[in-house]
């Protein structure tokens, strides 16, 4: 069983820790990982119970959520419904942590009865977080995000974890039944903006079409950030708000309504949103060109 659950992204986390000058992993799970050729976890499933805590203006809240990992899909359930995501995600490698974070690594506390390696991440914004990685599998068993003042913003910790072998290593797993995102058009009209990188180390991972617009996904190696772009006029005022998963910023720029959602520190998300270049307001000719391109793309099936 040892080492069988390590996923590619966690391997990247461990490697980044070394890149950042921290001591070498005491457990060294990455070198003994068993990962199937398509990158999915091979041979082991898990069930567990996770305690999720978050703080907002009304205080600190806690929820306990069942989690499950099977056949390369991680699912999280709870009152809000069950959600699943392929893991590791098929979007390619995430950005290296070393570009943004200073990382240190040490022996961590036991979580759900399992020994861990603690990975401490800090960035120039003053926020920091600590991840406890299962020494045998590399699974993140606990995580705490702290604001610059050291207060916990969000935390996650396994209270129980059961690993089981579901099939022999090397056995192909069945294809995931999760819905797949629709890729963005190869050529975007000037109403949209998808810079390859944003402030505070966010790098573009991929873009996809969503109802009524475009979503561009970014990552800094740990946190994700989504830009939702909708052509039109923002009904209502621009603004920012916090939700249980992070920060939301909405504003109008040129002919487009932007909504940025990030799960990183509030200051990072705001700075990244400010670094998005404003799309050009199209004249009649530009709109005609965009429309013609859309028609051609639709006819040629490149959408």
């Amino acid at each position: 069983m040892a080492g069988a659950l390590v996923a590619v992204p966690i391997t990247a986390v461990a490697a980044a820790a070394v890149d950042g000058g921290g001591p070498a992993s005491s457990a060294g799970p990455a070198g003994t990982d068993v990962v199937s050729p398509d990158g999915r976890l091979d041979g082991l499933d898990f069930d567990g119970l996770v305690r999720f805590t978050w703080a907002d203006g009304s205080g600190v809240h806690t929820a306990r959520l069942p989690v499950q990992g099977a056949d390369g899909v991680v699912r999280v359930g709870g009152p809000g419904g069950a959600h699943g995501v392929e893991w590791p995600a098929g979007a390619g490698p995430l950005p290296s942590l070393s570009g943004k974070y200073h990382t240190t690594e040490a022996d961590g506390p036991a979580v759900a009865g399992r020994p861990t390696t603690a990975l401490h991440l800090s960035s120039g914004s003053g926020s920091s977080e600590t991840l406890a990685l299962d020494q045998a599998t590399g699974l993140v068993l606990a995580r705490a995000e702290l604001d610059p003042g050291g207060a916990v913003v969000r935390s996650m910790e396994f209270e129980a974890l059961t690993l089981r072998r579901s099939h022999a290593p090397g056995t192909p797993v069945r294809p995931s039944a999760l819905p797949t995102a629709k890729a963005a058009p190869a050529r975007l009209s000037s109403e949209y903006s998808e810079p390859s990188q944003l402030a505070n180390g966010y790098q573009r991972v991929r873009a996809e079409s969503v109802s009524g617009g475009l979503r561009v996904i970014y990552s800094d190696g740990v946190h994700g950030l989504s830009i939702f772009e909708q052509p039109g006029h923002l009904a209502g005022a621009r603004g920012s708000s916090r939700w249980v998963g992070g920060e939301v910023v909405t504003w109008q720029a040129g002919p487009t309504v932007f909504t940025v959602i990030g799960d990183g520190p509030s200051t990072d998300v705001t700075a990244a949103a400010r670094s998005i270049p404003q799309p050009h307001q199209q004249g009649l000719l530009g709109r005609l060109r965009s429309w013609s391109r859309e028609v051609v793309d639709t006819i040629s099936g490149s959408h």
């Binding site: 992204p9 929820a63 959520l65 995501v85 995600a89 995580r143 991972v205």
Partner: peptide
């Protein structure tokens, strides 16, 4: 902007080294 829907999309389909923490907000 359908912010609630966007939040759910972000929580459930953003590549992350820690999908459990990423998805937890959608679960709670």
């Amino acid at each position: 902007p359908p912010v609630n829907r966007f939040e759910r999309i972000h929580a459930t389909s953003t590549p992350s080294p820690d999908p459990i923490t990423e998805m937890a907000p959608a679960g709670v």
